[in-house]
């Protein structure tokens, strides 16, 4: 008697939960991708295609692949905005040429650390799910902005990755910040540079150059 009751109970729970879940499942109706999402997707697909290209599999080709990846990254990321955000108010103290120099070194630092990580891993099982795109109000000077949320599945670990994209007048959509598990890459550097107001710009540039050697 009790057994039947428990069996029924499980069945009921199962059926009820099934209905609740199927009702709450996200709608299958997907609208057309917005422009920033399209740019991001094609950029990311481009890079993963290079990563999975068997032509670059052997060691000798790795250097060539790194350069191709860097160029592709350079076209989709706005490294000058990255640098500006990372330096925070220190940016004001940098001259035009120092800014260019910093941007060059900083983009290499980012690329070196993250592309090096990519280099020793197998990216066949990388799966990116784009969750939603939020178009933000443009800035006062008319820069369009969008936030794109995604889940990256790799190595059986799901990591939420958030892309912040912007489009300057006459320019194209570019990434100006990446948030991984809620941690803003640019914000993380800004915090590190926050207390560096006594160091000269040249010293700060030199420090990064030392790191990318």
């Amino acid at each position: 008697m009790q057994r039947i009751f428990i069996n029924n109970l499980f069945k009921t729970i199962f059926i009820i939960s099934f209905f609740i879940i199927s009702l709450s499942a996200p709608s299958m109706l997907m609208g057309a991708d917005s422009e920033p999402e399209r740019v991001l997707k094609s950029g990311v697909d481009d890079m993963t295609a290079v990563l999975n290209d068997p032509a670059f599999a052997d060691e000798a080709q790795k250097k060539a692949r790194k350069d191709i990846l860097f160029n592709k990254a350079d076209s989709i990321f706005d490294f000058s905005e990255f640098s500006k955000g990372a330096l925070g108010k220190n940016w004001e103290r940098f001259s035009e040429s120092q800014r260019t120099e910093f941007t060059k070194a900083f983009s290499r630092l980012i690329a070196n650390t993250y592309l090096a990580k990519i280099d020793d891993e197998n990216f066949q099982d990388l799966k990116i799910t784009y969750l939603k795109t939020e178009i933000l109000a443009p800035t006062k000077s008319g820069i369009e902005r969008a936030d794109i949320a995604s889940d990256v599945l790799h190595n059986k670990v799901v990591t939420p990755v958030y892309y912040r994209m912007m489009k300057k007048k006459g320019g194209s959509w570019k990434i100006y910040d990446v948030k991984i598990e809620g941690v803003s890459l640019v914000g993380n550097y800004r915090e590190q540079y926050r207390t560096r107001f006594n160091d000269s710009p040249d010293k700060i540039i030199e420090e990064i150059k030392e790191k990318i050697k």
């Binding site: 980012i110 650390t113 941690v183 993380n188 550097y189 590190q192």
Partner: peptide
Amino acid sequence: KSAALDPYVALRDAYIQMRRKQ
């Protein structure tokens, strides 16, 4: 650690940012 200029501050900020989001 290798991307950071100051690993201690980088880790502290990453932890705080992550927790605030959660």
